[in-house]
Write a protein that binds this DNA or RNA. Structure first.
Lengths: 219, 219
DNA sequence: CCAGAGAGTTAGTCATGCCTAACAGCTCAG
DNA sequence: CTGAGCTGTTAGGCATGACTAACTCTCTGG
């Protein structure tokens, strides 16, 4: 039995919520997926039955190795799709997430290969997320939230993490896209205001406004 | 509620089986869709409840106007997808049907428009099937099965109708593709053998071998 | 110490689609 | 005219994945 669409959504959510190594809580999954807590409990049991997650009542869930591989295949499809939608179909950077979210569950291996080939085997998607390779390996980088830069520090935007198209649109207008050079000018932590140079423009913002923008620190 | 994937498969099947204007039988649908007859009965009731088909017990089913429009939207997505898979992703003519069969249920209006635009608003798919326009209008043509040509008659291949990739592959090798000029040389009806000129090649075949190849008669 | 907030579970339901078993009605061959 | 072979239906069940109601458990604050 291949994984169903819903199935894959749970795996992805467990993957993202458990990135810090912690076990993923029922409530966190319910919130993330927009379903009730009992739905999560019952689904975790089924996923455990399929060998995709480790789960014991009340202790949260983690992916098994098999579950992690299955998740990487979904993430690979998602990120290749986003790249494809932007590069080939010329859809907007800020809109492609929702499309990819649906289609990622329905692409055959043949189509994934064809897209990968057409795009020249890209290593990251338009938002800077690394694309897992066909073996499920995912490149990792040392990134920090833009807001974590100290005054005077410089860096380069590498990833923008959000599923909200409005935020993406704003960041695009501000020049906060992967590759952009940034420099933290000053921070007033008490008022939650920071001044950041983005390319050759100045930006004043609160932490919330750039939450999800990740940069590589300049050495 | 949008139509589910299964839902759309039933509508398509009713559309194709009912092209001749007849009401579509439960058994025919069950065979076409590979499900049991009771499944069909129960689904027809639900489709009738949604106003997509006319159905009364024991009398077969037909599409309502609303059902026909919904079907045209699916057919449009399917045929645009096939064209796209061949033209852009360079998948083989004979393989794309299965892919399109899945994806047709999951394309947003935005993606359909993007594909349509990228392809330059094509009027037919790689197998020669007309693509319904965005308003659900479907061009109709006077086509006859290749095997119906009388000895001496000429024509042009316009559509190849089959979901079997092996048949498509064979026809491609034989040159039986949309646009090909054909001429019926001779027919031995008793032995079910006909000799057809395809482009500049000679082909000897039985009716079965070219069942699904439709031609436009030369005036 | 105990009340309330949260986390998490069980129990019971529902909708969607699928299945088999059983039965009813029609038609046609012998 | 009778039974075999269709057609099609009803009835009852199953898996998936969701829900609400109601419960337990644990932790924390007063």
């Amino acid at each position: 039995m291949p994984n169903s669409s819903v199935n894959e959504d749970y795996l992805k959510a467990i993957f993202y919520l458990g990135r810090d190594g912690s076990r993923v809580q029922t409530t966190a999954l319910a919130r993330q997926l927009g379903v009730s807590k009992p739905s999560v409990t019952s689904m975790l049991k089924r996923l455990a039955g399929k060998g995709l997650v480790d789960y014991s009542s009340g202790q949260g869930a983690t992916l098994t190795e098999e579950g992690r591989l299955a998740t990487m295949r979904v993430v690979r499809r998602h990120r290749l799709l986003e790249t494809f939608l932007v590069e080939v179909l010329h859809l907007d950077w800020s809109e492609v997430h929702a499309e990819a979210e649906v289609l990622e569950h329905h692409l055959s291996a043949r189509m994934v290969d064809a897209i990968d080939r057409l795009l020249g085997h890209p290593s990251e998607d338009p938002h800077g997320h690394p694309i897992p390779d066909a073996q499920g390996r995912l490149r990792t980088r040392e990134l920090v939230p833009l807001g974590d830069l100290a005054a005077g520090e410089r860096g380069t935007v590498r990833e923008v993490r959000t599923a909200q198209s409005g935020r993406l649109q704003r960041w695009k207008e501000l020049g906060l896209v992967p590759g952009a050079a940034v420099a933290m000018r000053s921070k007033q932590d008490l008022e939650d205001v920071m001044h950041v140079r983005v390319g050759d423009r100045e930006l004043a913002t609160g932490t919330e406004g750039v939450d999800g923008v990740f940069v590589e620190r300049e050495e």
